[in-house]
Simulated scan of single mutants.
Amino acid sequence: MNGSVHSSPTVVDIKLKRGPSGLGFNIVGGVDQQFVVNDSGIYVSKIKEDGAAGLDGRLTEGDKILAINGTKLENLTHRDAVELFRTAGEDVELRVRKKFAHHMNGPTDSQPKHEPSVFPLGVLAALAGAAAILALFYMRQPRKHF
């Protein structure tokens, strides 16, 4: 990164209106319970389908919430971050960095791009080895001539 969060194409602003069940998502992270290695940021852990975030559709599990109503979520405990969300009011603006699957500790729904799979090569090598063993076994069988 070039030092400016605002220049990154993966950072978006999302405005949500608090519904009857709140904003409709859960968070993890904080300085006291890191969700991502060496990162004490606040991350979306679950989206409730019928909640404000689920109906809006832009926020996804694994996104990092950088700020809420202009207040940066840096160096906060999990409890302090939760309190900011609880007291944010009815209209909430989130600054969000869209997820990068390869940095997450937990399971993700996508694989890193551009990494070739070695599985097909392993299968081919195993088949070639099996064919070689069968050929050797066949060649060592005594032949009967009629």
Rank of each mutant, 00 (worst) to 15 (best):
M1Q: 10
N2R: 13
G3F: 01
S7F: 02
S8E: 05
P9S: 07
T10V: 02
T10S: 05
K17S: 12
P20Q: 14
G22W: 03
N26F: 08
V28F: 08
G29K: 09
G30D: 06
Q34G: 12
F35S: 10
V37W: 13
V37K: 12
D39I: 02
D39R: 00
G41I: 00
V44Q: 02
V44G: 00
V44W: 01
A52G: 06
A52M: 04
A53V: 03
G57D: 05
G57R: 04
R58W: 01
T60Q: 14
E61N: 03
G70K: 07
E74R: 12
D80W: 06
A81I: 06
F85D: 02
A88F: 06
A88Q: 09
E93I: 09
L94M: 04
K99L: 02
F100N: 14
M104L: 06
M104G: 05
M104P: 01
P107C: 10
K113G: 10
S117Y: 07
S117E: 13
V118S: 14
V118W: 09
L121R: 09
A130G: 13
I133G: 02
L134I: 08
F137Y: 11
P142D: 07
R143Y: 11
K144N: 08
H145R: 15
H145S: 14
F146W: 10
